[in-house]
Design a binder for these strands. Sequence first.
DNA 1: GCTAAAGTGGACCGAAATGGTACGGTTTTC
DNA 2: GAAAACCGTACCATTTCGGTCCACTTTAGC
Lengths: 149, 149
Amino acid sequence: MLRVSKLTDYATVVMTVLAEAGTDVLSAQVLAERARLEIPTVSKLLKQLVHAGLVESFRGVNGGYRIGRAPTAISVAEIVVAMEGPIGMTECSVHSGLCDHENHCGVRGNWQRINQAIADALASVTLADMMKPPGPKRPIPTPLRVALV
Amino acid sequence: MLRVSKLTDYATVVMTVLAEAGTDVLSAQVLAERARLEIPTVSKLLKQLVHAGLVESFRGVNGGYRIGRAPTAISVAEIVVAMEGPIGMTECSVHSGLCDHENHCGVRGNWQRINQAIADALASVTLADMMKPPGPKRPIPTPLRVALV
DNA sequence: GCTAAAGTGGACCGAAATGGTACGGTTTTC
DNA sequence: GAAAACCGTACCATTTCGGTCCACTTTAGC
């Protein structure tokens, strides 16, 4: 199944918890409780989110984590990239030279276009959107549309 | 990295070879040569494509494979689904009941919407599109657009 | 019919990724 | 200086992936 890893999934949950906390600093323990995840798991993914600049960390007593930007300014694509690296449906569309068939492969360029479409789709959903209930057919203010071509 | 499996990638290549052959029946060996892949690998993925109804198979001497539909009537999404199963970015968005957090998870519904957007993106690219060179900015006839909402 | 070509189904194996977990080190507050 | 909390790294069990192989069945043609 085409899917993101569990850790990426969890990361979106933790990010929404951080977003709900606004400018408060939450410890890994509190985050784990609110997200209902194990502390080591939460710590692990927070490291990557900090590295990507999506979350700020504070050490020492009363340390913890705080969201780095407004939820409207963080996209799901950024979270996915922070956790999994660049979005590319095929290996060759990200790292060239690894596949023996690159020269005579007719589909490589088209996969790259598909990548872009999917990246755009993920980029157009913000963390703020993820905080809202899905809503049966509630239109999102700006008509977020992804051109495939 | 968010990606499809190699087998799925290869499947798109094999499908384009079959599409180029039109109504000809090609053996696994010929397909392997044209796609520059190993025969066992090609056989394996063809089994799945036959099962999904995207390819027809013929047994016995002079047997082989033939594309099941016009290339314009086969989408990349169908190939991905044939190889990997349903498109779902998170486990819970496809199979409910496996995740302990379903009841109190605020992001599940939103992931399902993202799934749909990505499925639509993959569904709007046909095998015929994959046969064409990417083309820098050549517009595709019908404005294939994917509404995210 | 017999034989050879060709697909079918299933099993198998090594390598890699995934997910959890643990531990020692460092920073900061009180 | 002691405790709280993050940091980096390493480890391990499990699963998945990619690739291969084999015994079986079907069919064309002699």
